[in-house]
């Protein structure tokens, strides 16, 4: 709680100094508008519902893209963990692909699918899939042999063993994988939207910049940052903590 209060005070001070600097005209509003102007732009954006349409559109792409990458990433991860042959071949390819920022695929995607929704979702999928794959693979490889042996003496084998023991045992890695996949997918989505057509948060950011509406530019950046950290802190961090505790991995 103390930490929370410290954080709140810190942000209030930052916003206050920023407002003060703007009022004293230390910099021009076109370079950095004041917090009150940003707030005004946000209120107007939500008021005429454009930002709401943007949020809905962005989240729709995110859910589809992230959903696909979680499922696809898990399936490939399971394959890599189970097959040495796949691990040696596909595994090395994925390691290489993982180091490529997914936005670089956008020009290719636009050639394939056109300048539309599908291209952006494609980039989001590429952003999330590989971390999920690598974590799923690690999770399955690190299942304690003791769990598997115990299950075997209780007559569990094959697919039953996988569903009831191996997969649940690797859930801590699945959660970490999902958390990273979300972070990469969110970044990929914003980058993709900057370069594509609207509606969407990234698109509106680009649009506002083109028209010199710096208050809206900063407003959208704030929204992107807040959503990013809220999902990470309030959803993934909590899930990860409770899983770590229950799975007995606390140090």
């Amino acid at each position: 709680m103390k930490k929370f209060i410290r954080q709140v005070i810190f942000f209030i001070v930052v916003v206050f100094l920023w407002e003060l600097g703007s009022r004293l005209e230390l910099w021009m509003p076109i370079i950095l508008p004041s917090p009150s102007m940003v707030l005004e732009a946000l209120i107007q954006g939500f008021g005429d519902k454009t930002l709401i349409y943007d949020l809905v559109a962005s989240f729709k792409r995110l859910f589809i893209g992230l959903g696909i990458s979680l499922v696809l990433g898990s399936l490939i991860g399971i394959l890599l963990a189970k097959s040495k042959y796949a691990d040696d071949t596909i595994g090395s390819l994925i390691l290489a692909l993982q180091s490529v920022p997914s936005i670089v695929w956008l020009p290719l995607a636009i050639m394939w699918f056109g300048m539309n929704e599908v291209s952006v979702i494609f980039v989001v999928v590429l952003g999330g899939t590989f971390v999920m794959t690598l974590n799923m693979r690690m999770g399955i490889k690190n299942v304690s042999p003791l769990y598997i042996q115990a299950a075997q003496t209780m007559g569990s084998k094959g697919i039953d063993l996988f569903i009831r023991v191996v997969f649940p045992a690797s859930i801590p890695y699945v959660v970490t994988g999902a958390r990273l996949a979300w972070a990469f997918a969110w970044r990929a989505l914003m980058a993709g939207e900057l370069l594509s057509t609207g509606p969407g948060l990234g698109y509106t950011l680009q649009y506002a910049s083109d028209f010199g509406d710096m208050s809206l530019v900063i407003g959208v950046i704030v929204i992107i940052g807040v959503i990013g950290s809220v999902v990470d802190q309030f959803i993934f961090n909590r899930v990860e903590k409770s899983v770590t505790r229950r799975w007995g991995l606390e140090s």
Binding site: L146, Q149, V165, A169, I171, R246
Partner: peptide, 8 residues
């Protein structure tokens, strides 16, 4: 030797 219960 160790309990080998499933934590989930």
């Amino acid at each position: 030797q160790q309990a080998a219960l499933f934590p989930w």
